[in-house]
Amino acid sequence: MDKTVNQKAWFLVLPVFLVVAFSAVLPLMTVVNYSMQDTFGNNQFFWNGVGWFKELLDPSTDLGGRFLASLGRNLFFSLVILAIEVPLGIVVALSMPREGWTVAACLVILALPLLIPWNVVGTIWQIFGRPDIGLLGYALNAIGFDYNYVSNDVDAWVTVIVMDVWHWTSLVALLCYAGLKSIPEAYYQAAQIDGASRWAVFKAIQLPKMNRVLLIAVLLRFMDSFMIYTEPFVVTGGGPGNSTTFVSIELVKIALGQFDLGKAAALSLVYNLIILIVCWIFYTVMTNAGAERAVKEGAA
């Protein structure tokens, strides 16, 4: 569909532009401003230039050490949950019933964790994992594991990861299911005539058709897990020690806990920049895929 050029369309976009600019540009300018200054309280500010940024990227300083450690933890966390959620999501999508009321029932139950407030997700797992009152913690201890997410680093990590798998695998599954549903029946019939194996069908038909939604799923999950705050904060509070302190938790600690405005602002900017780069990849992928589809539909 050809779009006509019409500059007056800006009037229609203006409300959105103003609302988002008020919420995004103004605060971001304050952040840039703070990131160049130091404060000793009482609203006295001193020019610090790029000092915070230098410190941030230097692991030998306190700020840099904390930032890079939390960044490392966060990247590791994102990789682990992607490695679990993407294959699991595909398997679940392939396991969806084909028709009947069970489809709707499965969709509803799958979607349920996605609609629970994030702090309640934390609360659910906090309760579920406790060795004294939680089913999971109690059962694990009963069969001989010494499981306690409050005091043991590994247990805390496992809890946070399982929680994220619980919370978000459904999203990957639902996206893949949407991709699978768009495959015409004729493809499967052709495969059957060719005597293709189950694995061949998956590799040659289903996976290529899921390509785009999978990419969207991976990028969405990466960005969301990279910004994760509420769920681990409720369950572990970033501990034991600092073992589950991710970038957002570190940032909030510095900004709202210590009111170290300069440091927090510098961290915010670098953090935002990383997200922006991933976001740009996401956008390019989606618009390219949209253009490809339009070309194909135009040709058909």
């Binding site: 959105v16 988002v20 919420s23 995004a24 103004l26 605060p27 971001l28 304050t30 952040v31 960005m223 990279f226 910004m227 705050y229 970038v247 957002s248 938790i249 940032l251 909030v252 900004a255 709202l256 405005l261 927090a264 602002a265 915010s268 953090y271 935002n272 997200i275 922006l276 991933v278 976001c279 740009w280 996401f282 956008y283």
Partner: peptide, 18 residues
Amino acid sequence: FWLLSNRMAPAAVYALPF
């Protein structure tokens, strides 16, 4: 794109300036 980038911005970044 700018709209999308705001959708993806970490809430923690905006907490203090907000």
